[in-house]
């Protein structure tokens, strides 16, 4: 009997199972267990959280597979890990390790300025960051099974993610006005197969699961972006940079589910542990912004 592994349906289907959920950045098994107990749908295994990567500088690479493996073994929920943009070597290591999804992430230092990883060659699904519809469709065209906003990781500031959500939605709405020739022109402009542009125009949403990432630090941040129409959220530095990660994690999980119920939001927002201090985007120099990596 024929058994199919790594099909597009299995990759995109995995992403669908994450909908409505919170995926948390963790750097060790203890944090992973806190995330799982709080109701996180998956963990992102990292050597350091984005706020610390940003502070440390230097070349940021894939985490030590031993660190990732320890996290994978500590929890029953899916464990994801990041590779550098274009670094198919790191991606192969992560696939051999058996992580559930690879994030080809701008938080790490890009390895290739010309190409992203050819994700269609892998059996495990990928997620990639984007700031606008063109970037999102290019990543889907390369085989990404899920897309997330880039936002500005490690800042605890939601403003850039909001910008990326609004821009992407506006560009999707504009597709509805276009006829065949217009869609062909868009496909050329975005450098993607016209099929993806047509599908997006018809669905009036991205053809894969779309999460928000990069700057979520509070339950209200998560509720706001969920109301904007994303399918779920990544919380990087916001949880384990707060003074009580377990409480913050639970509060963000509840706010993500009840994003449209202000009464629940009020309850979970009261007496929150101290949130991360955060960074005003205007104080970042252009070269300090991670979102410009890998377009």
């Amino acid at each position: 009997m024929e058994i199919v592994f790594g099909s597009e349906r299995l990759k995109r289907g995995f992403a669908k199972m994450q909908k409505g959920g919170v995926i948390m950045d963790v750097t060790n098994p203890e944090q992973a267990i806190i995330a799982e107990e709080a109701g996180s749908v998956a963990v992102m295994a990292l050597q350091a959280i984005p706020a610390d990567i940003r502070a440390a500088g230097g070349v940021a690479r894939m985490a030590d597979p031993a660190v990732i493996e320890a996290i994978m073994n500590a929890v029953t929920i899916p464990a994801m890990a990041k590779c550098r943009i274009g670094h198919f070597g790191e991606a192969q290591v992560l696939e051999a390790l058996g992580v559930d999804m690879i994030d080809e992430s701008e938080v790490l230092t890009p390895a290739d300025e010309e190409f992203h990883v050819d994700k269609s060659k892998f059996k495990i699904p990928f997620i990639c960051g984007s700031r606008d519809l063109g970037e999102a469709l290019r990543r889907i065209n390369e085989g990404a099974a899920m897309v997330r906003t880039k936002g500005e990781a490690g800042t605890g500031n939601i403003v850039e993610a909001m910008k990326h959500i609004r821009l992407t939605k506006r560009q999707i709405a504009e597709l509805a006005e276009l006829k065949h020739d217009g869609l062909e022109a868009k496909a050329q402009e975005y450098r993607v197969s016209v099929e993806f542009v047509k599908e997006t125009a018809k669905l009036q949403r991205l053809p894969v699961v779309w999460f928000c990432a990069g700057g979520i630090a509070t339950p209200a941040d998560s509720a706001m972006v969920m109301q904007m129409g994303v399918d779920g959220v990544f919380v990087g530095s916001g949880i384990f940079k707060s003074s009580d990660p377990a409480r913050m994690a639970r509060a963000i999980v509840e706010a993500t589910r009840y994003y449209d119920d202000p009464q629940v939001l009020l309850e979970v927002s009261k007496d929150l542990p101290q949130t991360m201090r955060g960074i005003d985007i205007k104080t970042l120099k252009a070269e300090e912004k991670l979102q410009a990596r890998g377009v």
Partner: peptide, 11 residues
Amino acid sequence: FGRQRESFEAE
């Protein structure tokens, strides 16, 4: 049946 890498489709 395992992790995502082992996820599958079958009749």
